[in-house]
Amino acid sequence: TQVHVDGVTYTFSNPEEAKKFADEMAKRKGGTWEIKDGHIHVE
């Protein structure tokens, strides 16, 4: 599962880990995350 944050791609083999990471990054940025085309995007 790929997580895209500010133009950087992080790859996780476990989708649950990817979601936890996205959640943390979104909180830090004061933003949100969503799943697009099977990838997670942090806004």
Rank of each mutant, 00 (worst) to 15 (best):
T1V: 12
E24M: 11
T11C: 14
K20M: 12
E43K: 14
R28V: 14
V42P: 02
E24Q: 08
M25Q: 11
G38V: 03
Y10M: 04
D23Y: 08
A18L: 01
D23F: 07
V5L: 08
K36V: 13
T9D: 04
A26M: 04
T1S: 06
E16Q: 09
V42E: 02
Y10L: 04
H39Y: 07
K20N: 11
R28K: 14
V42S: 02
H4M: 07
G38M: 04
W33F: 05
R28I: 15
A18G: 05
H39L: 09
K29P: 06
Q2I: 13
T9P: 04
G7D: 08
D23W: 07
G31H: 03
K19I: 15
A26Y: 03
D37K: 02
G31W: 07
E34D: 07
V5R: 01
D23K: 10
E24I: 10
E16G: 08
Q2M: 13
E34N: 09
T11S: 11
G7M: 05
E16Y: 10
K29G: 13
I35N: 05
D23G: 07
T1H: 08
T11Q: 08
G30Q: 05
V42L: 07
A26D: 02
D23V: 12
D6A: 07
E17K: 08
W33E: 03
S13K: 10
A22T: 01
Q2C: 13
V5F: 08
Q2F: 13
G7P: 01
D6M: 06
T11I: 12
V42M: 06
E43Y: 15
A22P: 00
G38T: 04
K36Q: 08
K19H: 09
G7C: 15
K19T: 11
D23C: 15
V8H: 11
G31N: 03
T1C: 14
A22F: 02
T9R: 08
D37S: 05
K29A: 13
E43T: 15
Y10D: 00
A26K: 03
S13N: 10
E43D: 10
W33K: 03
G31P: 02
G30C: 14
H39T: 10
V5C: 13
T1M: 14
T1W: 13
H39N: 08
V8C: 15
E17G: 05
F21P: 00
T1R: 05
W33S: 04
G31E: 03
G7I: 02
E43V: 15
G30K: 07
K20P: 01
E34M: 11
T9K: 08
T9V: 14
V3F: 02
H4E: 05
K29N: 14
M25D: 02
Q2D: 09
T9Q: 08
E16W: 10
E24S: 06
E16I: 10
H4D: 05
N14P: 00
H4N: 05
I40T: 02
K27N: 12
D37Q: 05
V5Y: 07
S13H: 09
K36G: 04
Y10I: 05
P15Y: 15
Y10F: 10
F12G: 00
